[in-house]
Amino acid sequence: MSLLTNVMDHSLDDGYAEAAERRKAAGEGGLPKTLRAKLGLAVGLVLAALVVTVGAAQARVSAPVVAKEREELIDRIDQETEAADKLESRVDALRADVDARRQEALRDSGGDRSRLVGVLAGSVAVHGPGVRLVVDDAKDAGTGGNGDPRSASGFSDTGRVRDRDMQRVVNGLWESGAEAISINGQRLTALSAIRAAGDAILVDNKPLVPPYTVLAVGDGPSLSERFQNSADGLYLHALQENYGIRTALSTADDLRLPAAPSVIVRTAQPISGKGTS
């Protein structure tokens, strides 16, 4: 306890002061006494001052260079941004020109039925009555399962909506009388493809996430009844009963579907003067 008391009563400053006094008495502290030591100290101070001065001079000289490089970089960024804006404007103009030419091609090929051709081809936006079908994964999707009849394709999670499920849904709606269909705002055409990439569903190479909202324009009540009684509608009902996949089907008075982002018009014409063998 006496040691702790002594440490608390006497700070370390007293020990430092005593050590300084001893060095002073021995001639070890303070400024150098000899001429050689004084010259060494002076040379050291001069070198330190020289280093600081040279560093400050270099910083002053390099500052305008850095500022100039920064301005040049900013100007280059502005130029590249302006060039990118011009290219984007040109892309928009070319896209509008392509759309106009596509519409003209559809009118030439469709004649008086050009509007119908555009609707069926998905090249124009449409609106009207129809049905809204929402298909979503089961609540416990991702937990896996055993004895899955669909596991033959490599999928073990029975609660996930698969690409072939959406294929059957879309085909069933077409067969039931749908005039135009979209999935999550993605307009479908006769050339659309519904595929899988891992666990994601791709529509025309664009990934979609659940829930999948399918809009189908047509005679709402009749379309709904026909789809529910079709083989594909019964298939969707079986998925709901056996795997917990959630579905909701309702009719709507006015559905709005956008035009397909890209419609490739392909035509074939016979070669005159040549027969077939």
Rank of each mutant, 00 (worst) to 15 (best):
K139E: 15
K139P: 05
D140H: 09
D140Y: 03
D140I: 10
A141D: 00
A141K: 07
A141L: 01
G144E: 00
G144S: 05
G145K: 07
N146D: 12
N146T: 12
D148A: 06
P149S: 01
P149L: 06
R150D: 14
R150E: 13
S151W: 04
A152H: 09
F155I: 08
S156E: 11
S156W: 01
D157S: 04
D157N: 07
V161C: 06
V161A: 07
R164E: 03
R164Q: 05
D165I: 10
Q167I: 13
R168F: 13
V169G: 08
N171A: 11
N171H: 12
N171P: 02
N171F: 10
L173K: 13
L173R: 12
W174L: 10
W174K: 12
E175G: 07
E175K: 14
G177S: 05
G177A: 04
E179P: 01
E179F: 06
I181Q: 03
I181P: 02
I183S: 02
I183D: 00
N184H: 07
Q186L: 08
L188F: 08
A193T: 13
I194T: 07
A197D: 14
A197L: 12
A200G: 00
A200S: 14
I201R: 01
I201W: 04
L202N: 07
L202A: 06
V203C: 05
V203Q: 00
D204G: 04
D204R: 03
K206P: 00
K206W: 02
P207I: 07
L208P: 05
L208D: 02
L208N: 02
V209E: 15
P210C: 10
P210R: 09
P211L: 07
Y212W: 10
T213M: 13
V214D: 05
V214P: 05
V214A: 06
L215Y: 13
A216Q: 08
V217W: 10
P221R: 13
L223S: 01
L223R: 04
S224Y: 04
S224T: 09
E225M: 12
R226D: 09
F227Q: 07
Q228C: 03
Q228T: 15
Q228M: 14
Q228D: 10
Q228N: 12
N229C: 00
S230Y: 02
S230E: 01
A231L: 10
G233R: 11
Y235G: 02
L236Q: 11
H237K: 14
H237E: 14
A238K: 11
A238S: 12
L239F: 05
Q240A: 15
Q240L: 07
Q240N: 14
E241I: 06
N242Y: 04
N242L: 12
I245P: 02
I245C: 02
T247D: 01
A248P: 00
A248Q: 11
L249Q: 01
L249A: 02
L249C: 09
S250L: 03
T251C: 10
T251P: 04
A252T: 10
D254K: 14
L255T: 00
R256N: 08
R256P: 02
A259Q: 12
A260N: 14
A260R: 09
V263E: 11
V263M: 06
I264F: 09
V265K: 11
T267I: 13
T267Q: 13
T267A: 03
T267E: 15
Q269I: 12
Q269V: 15
I271H: 06
S272G: 07
G275V: 01
T276F: 11
